[in-house]
Design a protein around this nucleic acid. Structure first.
Lengths: 219, 219
DNA sequence: GACGAGACTTTGACTAATCAAAACCAAATC
DNA sequence: GATTTGGTTTTGATTAGTCAAAGTCTCGTC
């Protein structure tokens, strides 16, 4: 059994590697992402290599092996199913479940997880709009763009906020920008670096490009 | 925050001290109960003493302080609520939830626990029939006797099996001796060291006194 | 009162995970 | 080619929890 620490490293490497195209992750990113000293990450990565969870070229980067990707996907599945449960069933706020899930994902057995999945009706997306990997480690492809890439005048649905800081989530909620909401880009002006957005019946308002990029939608 | 290990020691001491009248627990019992070497228990108990969770007289025994009892009760509450959830909501078998709960009880936050409690309808007893402590660390008194102490011909209800080994629980289930079931002692013979028991409409059968003592009922 | 058995404590060693700080390398700059 | 800079690796120490084995009590028996 991998320790909770090992699980966290692998999950972090998976998430970071999904964000880049090459799938190679730098030591610095890992240390930063897990909030540990650089040297701690280096030595832990060597342990993961011994366990055949990652491949590691000194001073170049880390990539997951098939075994590592499997474990990482499993952790992502655990995390997202737990989040879904906390929001759907226990009625917690979707802005605050991340930390809770961070603990529970390591404590829940495969059997209980499976029952939970069934109880929740085998959901495909978690409350943040992220896809939940299936048991064999695949997730449904999203056809998703960020608001900046969106056609004007086309109705679409918010699927995911990529910045999960509490501040940003609170801002988003105040504006009604929660996953599932229908929105429409009413105006795009790339020169002034802004997007005008209509949410439901409300009066349109303007978002800067930084924020617009963080909001993913499907049409 | 106490570590999972500390929580386990305190919970075990609480459970052991509830079984004796004096509330004093020997070092050997603790080591045995947690399946660690004797020396490990000794050194851990010293740590607990530093944390003011227990009082400890060398070579005499360990008692919980108020702080320790509070923590222990909290862990018992966590454990039993989680078990209730696993059986009631996810439909797991009550003979197998103990191990699952053993892990989850350390990972669940107070907030989530409270929501879970609410979701379950603030249950007073877990699937084994054990009372669930309230948030302020008290539990409903049980007026409960074991089958050996039971009056003949008096209908009563099974509340709790004190032996939670899988073997015993399986035996009990085969015989229909699960918490909630109505039973009746049809005959008591203290000389032959046996109790004859009727379960529902079925033909009465005989239990040895050892087994009878492990089955608690309320009338 | 001495003895022995069994419970308890002490000692020394080990593992996983961590940090701080020193040492090191590689790539851009001069 | 020499130098600086910033990320990376190494080194040495620390903490929590553990075990095995050696040492120490305590109590019942003679």
């Amino acid at each position: 059994m991998p320790s909770a620490t090992v699980e966290n490293y692998v999950k972090k490497i998976l998430v970071l590697s999904l964000e880049t195209s090459e799938g190679q992750v730098g030591m610095g990113e890992i240390a930063k992402g897990l909030d540990v000293a650089a040297g701690t990450a280096t030595s832990m990565i060597k342990t993961l290599e011994r366990e055949k969870l990652v491949r590691y070229k000194s001073r170049q980067g880390v990539t997951l092996t098939a075994k590592g990707r499997k474990l990482g996907m499993d952790m992502l599945r655990r995390h997202r199913l737990v989040e879904t449960f906390l929001v759907e069933t226990l009625g917690l706020d979707w802005t605050e479940v991340h930390q809770e899930a961070e603990e529970l994902e390591h404590a829940i057995s495969d059997k209980v997880l499976d029952r939970l999945d069934e109880f929740l009706g085998r959901p495909e997306f978690d409350p943040h709009g992220d896809p939940i990997p299936t048991k064999d480690g695949k997730f449904a492809e999203r056809r998703i763009r960020n608001l900046l890439e969106c056609q004007s005048k086309q109705p679409c649905t918010i699927k995911l906020l990529t910045d999960q800081s509490t501040d940003f989530l609170n801002f988003a909620r105040r504006k009604g920008l929660v996953p599932g909401t229908a929105v429409e880009v009413t105006n795009r002006d790339l020169i002034s670096d802004a997007v005008e957005l209509g949410v439901g019946k409300g009066k349109p308002f303007t978002l800067g490009s930084k924020a617009a990029k963080k909001i993913l939608v499907s049409s």
